[in-house]
Nucleic acid binder design. Structure first.
Length: 588
DNA sequence: GCCGTTTTCGGCCCGACTGTTTTCAGTCG
């Protein structure tokens, strides 16, 4: 999620914010201040403190505004001390952030954009501003063309050429790509590199391996006896458009799609250490390295060392063991408490795709042209024990009542025939109307095994009305699962405003469930919200909302996200055997 | 600006690559 700091209504105003300020907005302000301080040349550790705090705030499942309202001590949060706690309270209560206003007075805000350019960091940005008065990308482009940058300290001919090339190439800001979009490239790259002479292992690390919902680049790790052969091999990959850096053990290229690929080559004996290092996240790596340091060890991408003695690093397990930790799954490596949990041997046993026994939201079109029978076959082919057929209700442009009745009859007939191989569950993706009532008459609701309730209309409601709407639906005796709870699209702003914490609390009270929409462009709930649901004791259903047979396969992206949200098999509703599932969704 | 089982000061992760430096700073991940 990106928040436009410049447009934010909470900066530079004394008027109380009309709504509670979101964590994402606060985090963006802290990051912006860190950028400005960096350009100013402030103490780098102070800059880091703001970045750490931004991260803490962004990753927090509950809202800072709510903590402030409850008068909780924010200094208890990791990376937030007395000083920052006070600043956060001021942001929430008055909408003001004086430290940021002061920094803005020193450094024009537009300079921060320049940091996006490869090769431009805080020092060069500052030099461009102080020596040439440049504050924007456009001004930089103009200065380069006019030769005004030429001969300036730190700007050689190559740098000039690269910057101009970059400015002309980029017409819009770089966007992160969705995980599912880059998978084919990642796989093609791995098989291409694996063909190089002397290459033993090839693995895509980075956020791709952590299964983040979006990735900015692909970090590829290779072990090889001959590093040069491997880096040369990367350059021969057909999709390479531009070589950005090319060294003996490390190369960076840009593909035609705009995706950047970083390749690192290490010796086989360093595979584990390098894989830890390149899988990250940076915050996780720093936390682990700090542990190593405290134990008198040094950890880098080549191994674990005690003085000059190399203790190991061939496998990740060995690296973790040497620093006193059990193995931590890549999906957890975000420094969101996993190192602490590992130390206390309290890591979750993460849910796996093979634990999934069914899909609890599938549209009848997923049977392709073979109707319900085709759908049942598709589910059985995936090894599912059950599948819930959940077409939308009329208010969301779905089936008429009559068509739904006929479908329910069809499900009963087919179940008689299939005898539970698999079991078709009668459901509907029931629109929650603006007044919070469910968009089906009781006589139909009564015939359903479960409901999957959702918001597809009336996005513009205020936070209070939207929340009340959903809360009322949860109180319905026919409510089972809240589908795609926040309406988010990956990489976008939320489309409607909802107090998810209250919603989850009420779902817990009524014994219902929340959904994780597995589609790679949705992944709604987010990882952080999955963790919130788990912490509040609410089970999560991972569902695909598949509209075609092929869509059923997106389940794995949902499982990836669930793992990032610390979910275990027992936290996921659709890992339950049929009998148990029936009991859990039965209406009291 | 944060943090503490070598605590309230003095630390704060670490190495590769590039370009311009004439021995290393800036940037990046």
């Amino acid at each position: 999620m990106s928040v436009s700091v410049e447009d934010s209504s909470i900066v530079g105003t004394l008027v109380p914010a009309p709504r509670a300020v979101e964590n994402g907005e606060i985090a963006a302000l802290l990051d912006r201040l860190a950028d400005l301080l960096e350009i100013e040349g402030a103490n780098p550790f102070r800059v880091r403190a703001y970045r750490t705090a931004a991260r803490t705030v962004r990753d927090l499942p509950g809202s800072i505004a709510a903590l402030v309202a409850e008068d909780r001590d924010l200094a208890e949060l990791p990376g937030i001390g007395h000083d920052l706690a006070g600043k956060l309270v001021e942001i929430v209560e008055s909408g003001r952030f004086p430290a940021l206003e002061e920094a803005r007075a020193q450094v024009p805000s537009g300079l921060v954009d320049l940091l996006e350019l490869p090769g431009v960091g805080p020092k060069r940005a500052k030099a461009l501003y102080e020596e040439l008065g440049i504050t924007t990308m456009d001004e930089l482009a103009a200065a380069l063309r006019a030769g005004r940058v030429h001969g300036r300290h730190g700007f050689g001919e190559t740098t000039e050429r690269k910057l101009l090339h970059e400015l002309e190439r980029r017409t819009k800001p770089e966007r992160r790509s969705m995980l599912a979009e880059v998978e084919p490239t990642a796989q093609a790259l791995v098989s291409h590199l694996s063909g190089a002479r002397g290459v033993r292992r090839t693995v895509v690390a980075g956020s791709y391996r952590r299964r983040r919902e979006t990735v900015r680049d692909l970090d590829v790790l290779v072990t090889a006896s001959d590093p040069t052969a491997a880096t040369e091999r990367l350059l021969s990959f057909a999709e390479v458009e531009e070589v950005l850096a090319h060294g003996s053990t490390r190369s960076t290229v840009r593909l035609g799609s705009g995706l950047q690929v970083d390749l690192r080559v290490v010796k086989e004996e360093s595979y584990g250490a390098a894989l830890c290092y390149f899988t990250g996240s940076v915050a996780h790596s720093v936390a682990v390295r700090r542990l190593a340091q405290r134990a008198g060890l040094k950890l880098n991408e080549y191994g674990v060392f005690h003085g000059d003695e190399r203790l190991g690093g061939r496998t990740e397990r060995e690296v973790f063991r040497l620093v006193g930790l059990p193995y931590i799954a890549p999906e957890l490596r975000e420094n969101r408490g996993e190192v602490d949990a590992a130390l206390r041997h309290r890591l979750p046993h993460l849910v796996r795709e093979q634990d999934v026994r069914g899909d609890l939201r599938v549209h009848s079109s997923a049977g392709d042209r073979q109707g319900l029978r085709g759908l049942a076959n598709a589910a059985r082919d995936r090894g599912y024990e059950y599948v819930a057929i959940a077409d939308r209700t009329p208010a969301a442009g779905g089936r008429s009542h009559r068509a739904l009745r006929e479908q329910l009859d069809g499900i009963e007939r087919l179940n008689d025939e299939l005898r539970g191989h698999p079991l078709l569950l009668a459901s509907a993706e029931v629109e929650i109307l603006e007044d919070g009532s469910l968009d089906l008459p009781e006589r139909l609701l009564r015939r359903l095994d479960l409901t999957v309730c959702a918001v597809h209309t009336g996005f513009a409601l205020s936070r209070r009305r939207q929340t009340d709407r959903v809360l009322r639906a949860i109180e319905s005796p026919y409510f089972t699962i809240l589908a795609h709870p926040t309406g988010r699209l990956v990489g976008d702003e939320p489309r409607y405003d909802l107090d998810l914490e209250r919603v989850i609390e009420l779902v817990h009270e009524h014994g219902g469930f929340v959904e994780l929409d597995a589609r790679p462009g949705r992944l709604d709930l987010s990882d952080v919200h999955c963790k919130l649901a788990k912490e509040r004791g609410v089970g999560v259903a991972i569902s695909t909302g598949a509209a075609s047979r092929a869509d059923l396969a997106v389940m794995r992206f949902g499982v990836d996200q669930a793992r990032r949200g610390w979910l275990e098999r027992t936290d996921v509703l659709n890992t339950r055997p049929v009998a148990e599932l029936r009991r859990l969704i039965a209406r009291s």
